[in-house]
Simulated assay, not measured.
Amino acid sequence: MEVGDGWARFELEPAEWHYNVIGSVHGGILSTLADTALGCAIHTKLPAGTGYTSLDLTIKFTRVATVDSGVLTCEGTVITIGRRTATAQARITDSSGRVIAHAVTTCLIIPSG
């Protein structure tokens, strides 16, 4: 895991227990990876004590991921941030740099207090 101003990067090494019944990494696993990177990217732009929650998550799966894909890397970056909502985008790539999936989210910003 790495984070910076407006971005977050997470990695996952696929294992067979991540598979769905057709023998590839389950879309829910990839969605969780994307949602985590997206939310954390937004979190880096918020003042201390401010919360957030996902309003939506849209993900497009473009390539099958398996244990042979190597480490999957997901980097999320903030697109916009306002007073009440923020948006971010992410790409999941395999160890060869091929895009496995891409995603966008909108998060509700929850002021402290």
Score class of each variant (00 low, 15 high):
Glu11Tyr: 00
Glu11Met: 10
Glu11Arg: 15
Glu11Trp: 00
Glu11Gly: 05
Leu12Pro: 08
Leu12Tyr: 03
Leu12Glu: 11
Leu12Arg: 07
Glu13Met: 07
Glu13Cys: 00
Pro14Gly: 04
Pro14Asp: 06
Glu16Val: 07
Glu16Ser: 04
Trp17Leu: 08
His18Phe: 04
His18Trp: 03
Tyr19Pro: 13
Asn20Thr: 06
Asn20Val: 07
Val21Gln: 12
Val21His: 06
Val21Asp: 10
Val21Pro: 04
Val21Asn: 09
Gly23His: 09
Gly23Ser: 09
Gly23Pro: 07
Gly23Val: 05
Ser24Arg: 08
Ser24Gln: 07
Ser24His: 04
Val25Ile: 03
Val25Leu: 03
His26Lys: 00
Gly27Lys: 04
Gly28Asp: 09
Gly28His: 07
Gly28Ile: 09
Leu30Asp: 05
Ser31Tyr: 01
Ser31Lys: 00
Thr32Ile: 02
Leu33Gly: 06
Leu33Met: 06
Ala34Arg: 07
Ala34Val: 15
Asp35Lys: 10
Asp35Asn: 11
Asp35Arg: 11
Asp35Pro: 12
Thr36Ala: 12
Ala37Leu: 14
Ala37Ile: 08
Leu38Gln: 10
Leu38Pro: 02
Gly39Ala: 15
Gly39Met: 05
Gly39Ser: 15
Gly39Gln: 03
Cys40Leu: 14
Ala41Gly: 13
Ala41Pro: 14
Ala41Leu: 13
Ile42Thr: 03
Thr44Val: 01
Thr44Phe: 00
Thr44Ile: 01
Lys45Gln: 15
Lys45Thr: 15
Lys45Glu: 13
Lys45Arg: 15
Lys45His: 04
Lys45Val: 04
Leu46Trp: 10
Leu46Glu: 14
Pro47Gln: 11
Pro47Thr: 05
Pro47His: 07
Ala48Val: 09
Ala48Lys: 14
Ala48Cys: 00
Ala48His: 11
Ala48Phe: 02
Ala48Asn: 09
Gly49Leu: 13
Gly49Trp: 11
Gly49Ala: 10
Gly49Thr: 13
Thr50Ala: 09
Gly51Asn: 13
Tyr52Lys: 02
Tyr52Asp: 00
Tyr52Ser: 14
Tyr52Thr: 01
Thr53Lys: 04
Thr53Ile: 11
Thr53Asp: 11
Thr53Phe: 02
Ser54Gly: 15
Ser54Met: 08
Ser54Asp: 09
Leu55Arg: 13
